[in-house]
Design a protein around this nucleic acid. Structure first.
Lengths: 221, 221
DNA sequence: ATGGCGCTGACAGGAAGCTGACAGTCCAAG
DNA sequence: CTTGGACTGTCAGCTTCCTGTCAGCGCCAT
């Protein structure tokens, strides 16, 4: 899962980024409205954390532009304490959730997880398919009730596929969502990762649809 | 389905081409207006993605020439951000849809699919005939509710025939739309493909009209 | 009946994907 | 600062599957 953090204070941005990375997300940072607008239009993020006070272009304006262009990805808005006007405007502009500054990182991470789940139509923090079970809060994956330790990359891969269970996910899409824009990888890196996951979770968990991508079956069709 | 990409930046052209190929389209690329004009006049494309800023002949001029010559295939125009004048001119010149640069590939692919459906008079992303059902977004084909896995070529074939259901499609036309101009094939390759599809979906799904071509029955006559 | 169009099974070249080995990088412990 | 281990990208070789070609057969229309 790849997240764009839009925040002009580099310290806060770094903090948020660290917290989200620890929660197995991939993050990019945009420090001003112009950059944010461009990236949000170009890259396929799963969520955007948007601070409103920004140089060049205001956060709300950027949000409105995205919505006008048809971007429907979840946006979590960070707003200064007590500015109710901002909040109302945010709702109108198409924000999906808010967090009032200052906030606890834990809280932010929890909301991000919930928003992403909601955006793919999953209610619970524990996602199950016929073969595996992913606890998104603990970042635990288990087969037959047995916990299987995964490396960060492996977990990101499994998590993304499970969030998109029942759908064939093209390799290109996986690459885009598993890696930030600074570390583009070749397709083979993905194949290697898939193989490593299969070794741990079993060959059947991830199916290959030759020519299309990878597929994780949904338990309840 | 065969698509002409008119774009002078080779990187962007390659990106678009890759995205469309992943969505089971066949693509050719034209890097300047002159080449675009010639190909658009010569080859039977199902859609054209047209960038406006081009060497030799301007994109709008090319579009106008095509329209003047009576070509009515769908054209998706790529326009630079904020150039409203271009947009208005594009409408006048006969563009069917726009996309403002920069954009997400997903969005482009979605619009291309929609335009192609519209051009054959189909509203939904799921096309059904009496015997089969094609989900163009997931690239799924099913008979009697059962998903039938198809190889890329097989899917392209079925997709094209289903988009043209109720009409006899000559073999020559199939060849032109299933393959790019770089990889021309003999007629027998098509026959082999037809046979493979029939093995998977049933002999009745594709009828042979000897001397004329192939035919997929429409469900609602 | 017969010529030709279309069908079919076999085969092979090549592409897509898999796998094991290896090495560079990063981080934590000493 | 050094060392060791975990993680992961890259490479090379291999396997599997896709698909075009060929050769031969069957069936339809005249």
């Amino acid at each position: 899962m790849r997240i764009l953090i839009v925040e002009d204070d580099p310290r806060i941005a770094a903090d948020i980024s660290a917290a989200l990375k620890a929660a197995s997300f991939v993050t990019d940072i945009a420090a001003d409205g112009e950059d944010a607008w461009f990236r949000g239009d170009t890259e396929p993020y799963d969520l955007i954390v948007l601070d409103l006070g920004l140089p060049k272009i205001d956060g709300l304006t950027v949000l409105k532009k995205w919505r006008a262009a048809g971007r429907h990805l979840p946006v979590l808005v960070l707003t200064a304490r007590g500015l109710w006007a901002e909040r109302v405007e945010g709702i109108d502009a198409g924000a999906d959730d808010y967090l009032v500054k200052p906030f606890q990182m834990e809280e932010l991470v929890a909301r991000v997880r919930a928003l992403i789940r909601r955006s793919v139509g999953i209610g619970s923090a524990v996602i199950e398919t016929g073969l595996i079970r992913v606890d998104t809060r603990q970042m635990h994956v288990s087969t037959n009730g047995v916990h299987v330790p995964l490396t960060p990359l492996e977990y990101r891969l499994v998590s993304f596929l499970v969030h998109n269970k029942g759908r064939v996910v093209p390799a290109s899409e996986l690459l885009e969502h598993l890696y930030g824009d600074e570390d583009a990888r070749e397709a083979n890196a993905l194949e290697a990762a898939i193989m490593r996951v299969r070794k741990k979770l079993g060959t059947e968990t991830i199916e290959t649809r030759r020519g299309y991508g990878y597929f994780v079956a949904d338990s309840a069709p």
